[in-house]
C-alpha cells in the first residue's frame, strides 16, 4: 500500500470517527448527574452486603467477581503470549549468567546498596496494599504490582543476580499459576458451600476490621500473588532479551 492510499484511508476513518464522537457526546449523561442504578444500589447496600468499606473492591471481588476472574485470565493469557513470542528461536543461545558482567553503565555499589535496602520496605507496602483492599483503596491488582516492584528495584539498582535470587524463574511461574488457580478455587468454594459460583461463603465480620468481608481478602491475596508473578515474569522475559539471549 502506498503512502497516499494510506493517508486517504486514514482521513476517511478519521471523518467517520469525528461524526460518531459528536453524536456520542450529545447522548452522554450530564457531567455530575450520573443516573446509573447499579452504583446507587451498591452505595446503599454495599457495606451491609459485603462488609467491605472499599466499595470498588466490593464490586470487583464480590458483585463482579466472575468478570474479575475473566480479567485475571486475560492477564494470565497475555503473559503466556509474551513468553511464547519471546521464546528462544533457532539461531539463538542463552549466555551464561555471569554475575558482575550485568551491571548497568553508571551503576555503583551505593546505588546497589540503596536498591537492596528498599526491597524490604516496598515488599511490606505491597503486602499491606494487598491485604487491606477490603478496607481502604488497594487490593490484589494494585498491591501485586507493588510486590513485583520490590524485586524490580533490585534489578534497576544493577543487582541482576540479586533480582534472580529474590525472584527465581520457577517460583515466579509457580506463583502466577497458583494465584490464578486460587482465585478460581474461591469461586468454586462459593459453588460448593453456598450454591452459587463466587458466592461469599465465609462469615462477613465487622466492616472496617482486618478479617472482614468473607472471601474478598482471600481473593485479593490470590490475585496479588498472580499479578506479582505475572509482572515479574514479563520483566524477566524482557530483561533476558537484553542480557541473556544472544544470537549464535
Amino acid at each position: 500500500m502506498n503512502r497516499r492510499l494510506r493517508i486517504g484511508l486514514f482521513l476517511g476513518g478519521a471523518a467517520l470517527l469525528a461524526g460518531m464522537l459528536v453524536a456520542a457526546v450529545g447522548d452522554l449523561p450530564g457531567f455530575g448527574h450520573y443516573p446509573g442504578p447499579y452504583g446507587i444500589l451498591i452505595e446503599e447496600t454495599g457495606v451491609a452486603g459485603t462488609s467491605a468499606t472499599d466499595l470498588v473492591t466490593a464490586v470487583n471481588f464480590d458483585y463482579r467477581a466472575f468478570d474479575t476472574m475473566g480479567e485475571e485470565f486475560i492477564l494470565f493469557a497475555a503473559v503466556l503470549g509474551v513468553a511464547i513470542v519471546l521464546r528462544r528461536r533457532r539461531g539463538e543461545r542463552a549466555e551464561d549468567e555471569r554475575g558482575d558482567d550485568h551491571h548497568f553503565p553508571g551503576s555503583s555499589s551505593a546505588l546497589g546498596a540503596l536498591g537492596l535496602a528498599l526491597v524490604g520496605p516496598v515488599f511490606v507496602l505491597g503486602a499491606y496494599v494487598v491485604t487491606h483492599g477490603q478496607i481502604t483503596p488497594g487490593g490484589g491488582f494494585q498491591g501485586g504490582v507493588v510486590l513485583a516492584a520490590a524485586a524490580l528495584i533490585a534489578f534497576l539498582a544493577g543487582e541482576y543476580v540479586a533480582f534472580k535470587v529474590i525472584a527465581p524463574h520457577a517460583m515466579v511461574e509457580a506463583g502466577e499459576a497458583a494465584g490464578a488457580a486460587g482465585f478460581a478455587l474461591v469461586g468454586l468454594g462459593g459453588l460448593i458451600f453456598a450454591g452459587t459460583f463466587f458466592a461469599n461463603f465465609i462469615a462477613l465480620g465487622t466492616p472496617g476490621s482486618f478479617l472482614s468481608s468473607g472471601t474478598i481478602p482471600i481473593s485479593n491475596l490470590a490475585v496479588g500473588i498472580e499479578v506479582a508473578g505475572a509482572f515479574l515474569l514479563l520483566w524477566t522475559e524482557f530483561s533476558d532479551q537484553a542480557l541473556v539471549v544472544r544470537s549464535k
Binding site: 446509573g36 452505595e43 464490586v59 483503596p137 466492616p207
Partner: peptide, 21 residues
C-alpha cells in the same frame, strides 16, 4: 466523595463505584 466508607459516615453520597471498578 470517593466510594470508600472506611472513614466517612454511611449516609455520605459517593461517586459511582461500578465505573471505578
Amino acid at each position: 466523595a470517593a466510594p470508600i466508607y472506611a472513614d466517612i459516615a454511611e449516609s455520605t453520597m459517593v461517586v459511582d463505584p461500578v465505573v471505578q471498578a
